[in-house]
Amino acid sequence: MAELTYRDAVIRGIAQEMTRDPDVVFLGEDVAKAGGVFKATVGLYEQFGPLRVRDTPISEQAILGAAMGAAMTGLKPIAEIMFSDFFAVCFDYIANEFPKSRYMSNGQVKCPLVVRTGNGAGSRFGAQHSQSVENWCMMIPGLKVVAPSNPRDVIGLLAAAVRDPDPVIFLEHKSLYATKGEVPDGEIVDSLGTAKVLRSGKDATICALALMVPRALEAAEKLKAEHGIDCEVVDVRSLVPLDTQTILGSIAKTHRLFTVEENPRLCGWGAEIVSIAADEAFYDFDGPPVRITTPHLPLPAADILEDIVLPTPDRIAETVRRSLGS
């Protein structure tokens, strides 16, 4: 067992998979010699050499297209798109090419690749370097989408993503890179499509993803300490495949549902979960499900403004408290 940062977990996760399988290769902007703009790939170039860890030009379409061509013909590429906002300049691959090639070819074409990207707010970078784009990806049939909230999950889910035969979008949260967590020694392999109950409780279910997970946990402790409200916190982890059984199981126990989403409100993943719960668990509810989201806004840069728009532990706790009428 060692304490590791989320950033170092990314390095360890990639290294674990590159050590295991020589067909795993890694490409992106500034990822090799410079070790990544977030320093999340430091040492990989030195460890695995210039044939397997490759710097690219600022050409996001070339990066994702090359990853796809390599994946189709037998490699297992990991491609980095520096900021998830840049998905917008290479979205053809994410929306049209990766996820549809297998279907359109009647199963002939395979696309086993991982796109890692820095997602989310908190760095005061403004509206084009801070977005949470999980909902851009979740809506596309044929993709898988995961977003770890802690170092152990970074390694385990990254390993699962690399070993998965489908294209996986792997969303790393920029504001989590410096956070620490306990990580067991040895190989870690998790499974996609599994949510985790991180805190057990009986009064309300709070579903959260990535940076919103530690905030939901903090809110839960506050609610317990200050109001005696006992919340269950579910780390959704994987949007596609979606572990609805864990979420519905928790609702059956607590009878209330809150989602905490960093993405702007419209078409956020929480809306899908609420919709599923309404269809399949309506009579389990003691009150309406509530979505706690970033408002439907571009993100402002200034710290005082950005801090207001993202869901905070205080906003989560206050929303739950009011909703439960305590």
Binding site: S59, Q61, A62, I63, L64, G65, A66, A67, M68, G69, A70, A71, M72, T73, G74, L75, P77, D92, Y93, N96, E97, S101, S105, V109
Partner: peptide
């Protein structure tokens, strides 16, 4: 290895196959 209906999409994909 496919016929691509989005103009230009397959040039980077061909690069990837060549990289392999």
């Amino acid at each position: 290895m496919g016929s691509y209906a989005i103009i230009g999409a397959h040039l980077p994909i061909a690069c990837g196959a060549a990289w392999r």
